[in-house]
Every structure is written in structure tokens, then in C-alpha cells.
Amino acid sequence: MTNLEKLDKIFVEVFSCKKEELGPDFNKDNVGTWDSVHQLSLTSSIEDDFDIMLDVEDIIGCTSYEAVKEILAKYEIEL
């Protein structure tokens, strides 16, 4: 499984969405279920699956699919 597939799987599981929905518009404002609990669940799964420890600022910054990809790049996770 590639890193991108791994990330998409996390999103699909956390937000109970379809993989096809993931893209530039998948963000906190457009996704009804994107509350703080789901965001924490998302970042927690990312940390577990990619074996990293996100900084607090990055956890707060994980507010969209695209933002998460940018943040993962900071941790040298190639997607």
C-alpha cells in the first residue's frame, strides 16, 4: 500500500466517506462531520499509521485533505 493509499484509507475510516470524495474541497467547512473529535481521531490515526508525532500546531492545522498532505510533507512522508 502506498502512503497516499494509506492516508486515503484513514480519511475514509474517520469520516465514513467514499475515497472519491477526497480532494481540494474536502475540508472542515464542507464536511458536516468534521468536528474537533473527528480531527483528533484523524491526527491520531495518522500518527499511528505513519509512526510520527505531530506538533500541536500541525494537529490544529489539519483542517483539510490538502492541508494534511502538506503537513505530512514536513515530516518527510512522501505521498
Binding site: W34, D35, S36, Q39, V56, I59, I60
Partner: peptide, 25 residues
């Protein structure tokens, strides 16, 4: 307020991400 949050000013509130950022640091 969206995301399933309906409340009045008499009600206690939690700003989830602010509290989380504080609580884990």
C-alpha cells in the same frame, strides 16, 4: 454553530481544538 452544536449564551461551551491544543501541551 454547525457540526451539531446548538446552544444559547446561558450554556457552557467548549472550544474543542483550543482545549485540545492546551491539553496536550
Amino acid at each position: 454553530f454547525g457540526h451539531g452544536i446548538i446552544r444559547a449564551p446561558k450554556d457552557a461551551l467548549i472550544n474543542g481544538m483550543d482545549v485540545f491544543a492546551f491539553a496536550i501541551s
